[in-house]
Design a protein around this nucleic acid. Structure first.
Lengths: 122, 122
DNA sequence: CAATTGTACTGTATGTCTTAGTACAGTTAT
DNA sequence: ATAACTGTACTAAGACATACAGTACAATTG
């Protein structure tokens, strides 16, 4: 379900959170579906349950999950959260385009590359 | 010349390095030009000289600068470094496009936005 | 009742970041 | 030559984040 990269400079709990966010946004984990329990996820990834709990807390604070004591944690994907995420990504997109332009690429060239983007190439 | 954001989660030395990289890539600091001395830069930003030295070390390791003991540190922008940077940025671009597509935007829509990018709007 | 769930603690170990201070060799300007 | 600069290399200390270990409790489920 998820994999950790210990060469990555990002903390483990951020890798877990970002990985789950990706699975939720892509629909791999539909909203309402139950996430693995804190202890199960920790055992599967061979890390401390506290680290998973922290990842779930962060994910819940972002709006991509909610937890019910005694029942479990569940995926969520409300409209306002996706709207906010889209704005964040567009800001990053603009910054990257700007630097690419300074590095010699034309906006049209970058635009063609984005428009030609295909899911199966990823 | 540069500004620090203490709310930013990135360490200071990375902010300095990234800021200088940007100034060099955009041409604000032409290759061969002298960067502020470690101590001058530290005084201007009101931080420790060690932190600036670390930023310069990192910048030099990336290839955007070179240092000469007794003389100073200087900007650089060799072709192979810009090529590598462009590859890094294109990878990030693809990842962002992928997520934007899952969030409902079409590749064509994203492509148009990039193609319409204007420097003066930044 | 027993097992599982999320949650909340305490404590410890480790690594990174930053500052402070000192020192040395090379370069530049006086 | 002398003084003032330059990059560079250390040590030491403190603050902070990360991760792990262990324990505990209330709510839910079988």
């Amino acid at each position: 379900m998820l994999s950790l990269n210990y060469r990555d400079s990002r903390p483990i709990y951020e890798q877990v959170r970002d990985g789950l966010r990706r699975l939720i946004i892509t629909g791999a984990i539909p909203p309402g579906d139950k996430l693995p329990s804190v202890r199960a996820m920790a055992g599967q990834l061979a890390i401390n349950p506290n680290t998973i709990q922290r990842a779930y807390e962060s994910l819940e604070q972002e709006g991509y999950a909610y937890s019910v004591p005694g029942k479990g944690s569940f995926a969520a994907l409300p409209q306002d959260v996706t709207d906010k995420r889209r704005e964040e990504l567009l800001e990053k997109l603009d910054a990257i385009v700007q630097e690419l332009v300074y590095l010699g690429m034309t906006p049209a060239e970058i635009g063609r590359r984005c428009a030609a983007w295909k899911e199966e190439t990823q």
